[in-house]
Computed example of a mutant assay.
Amino acid sequence: MLDVLLRLFNMQHTALGKTVSHKTRHERARFLRRFFRDLVDKAGFRRPPDPRNLGQKHVQAMVQVWQRERLAPATIQTYLSFLRGLASWLDKPGLVRPPAHYGLRLEEYERHEYAQRDKSWRAQGLDVEQVLQQVAAFDPRIAACMRLMHVFGLRDKESVMLRPHAHVVPFAQTGLPDVGLNADDYLWVKGKGGRVRWIAIDADAQRLALAQARTLVTGQDASMGDPARTLRQNLRRLMYVLEKFGITRRAAGTTGHGLRHGHVNDLYEQIGGVPSPVRGGPVLPPVQDRAARKAVAERAGHARLRASGAYIGSVTLARNRPSDRSAEPPCG
């Protein structure tokens, strides 16, 4: 029955009238199959129920399992969201209750919307150029993708799918208003939700990264991904190389995504004139802060200004920072 439901509904967004990405479909299907297995393996049920008979006792039991396993708040929120989707497919819209109903404390399910620390490579003591040189000796194509993430603030998927020839166009072809003219050439990037953004190519490091990337692709319309691999395989290769060189949250305190964090934090400082809140910067006047956050949100490809806080932190973080830094305890 679960397979039938997945075939019928898994491509649909649970709240909006649109389809979801292949990544979301894969993760949702994998979770739901594991959920019913875990009801037996971890929650003590004799057999997994028919999805049509899913009830509160099953959800409650699995929430207790997640509490024991100390899953991250974001993970629990995602799992509950997937279960709400399943409930909607079964025409049981109220089946999954708010997290507090299952005894979850606020800190166990509330996501941190704003960054609490600088996740960039620099903040973790990593020399970006040194790492990229080492990676280039092992896999030049992956190193070029990582460099594009670094100088343009791209997501991993965006860097792999980028076409270094075809996606660079003169300003006149962007359709942007003349007030937005910041460079002769712009990079076309298609991000999450199909949102397109244009990034001004206004730095030598960006031009160099594109020049290096162009030497590795096979034609004018070719993307950065290895043509012998599928998109999924190229993304796996990128993850493999990052892990091989120790760029993981456990080993280095950051991931490949840290290149994107570093780029947009640098951008905030460039626009605002001071370091971002997660980098210890002071509180900016609201107009300046908003302008810098708007630039960060646009560069990262987010429609909401508030999304910038996930990279640079909140104004509250800067406001609550002790003014007398000599009184702060030394870092461990």
Rank of each mutant, 00 (worst) to 15 (best):
R30Y: 13
V65L: 09
D41M: 11
F45W: 05
Q60H: 11
L71S: 06
R46M: 12
P49V: 03
L54P: 02
P73N: 03
D50P: 03
L32S: 03
S21G: 04
P49I: 00
P73G: 13
A29T: 11
V59W: 00
F35H: 03
D38A: 09
P49A: 03
P49G: 01
R37P: 01
Q60Y: 04
V20D: 02
P51E: 00
R37I: 10
T19C: 04
Q67V: 13
R33A: 08
L54N: 02
Q64E: 15
Q56A: 10
F45M: 07
V65A: 05
L39I: 09
R68A: 12
L71W: 14
R28W: 07
D38M: 05
V65M: 08
T19I: 11
P51K: 05
R68N: 10
R47A: 15
W66R: 02
R30C: 11
P73W: 01
V63Q: 02
L39C: 04
P48G: 06
T19Y: 06
W66P: 03
D50R: 07
A29N: 13
T24S: 12
D38K: 04
H22K: 15
R30D: 11
E27Q: 15
R25V: 10
E27L: 15
E69Q: 13
R52F: 12
D50V: 03
R37Q: 14
R68Q: 11
R70Y: 07
R37M: 11
N53V: 06
F31W: 10
K42G: 02
P48E: 09
T24D: 04
V59G: 01
Q60M: 09
R37T: 12
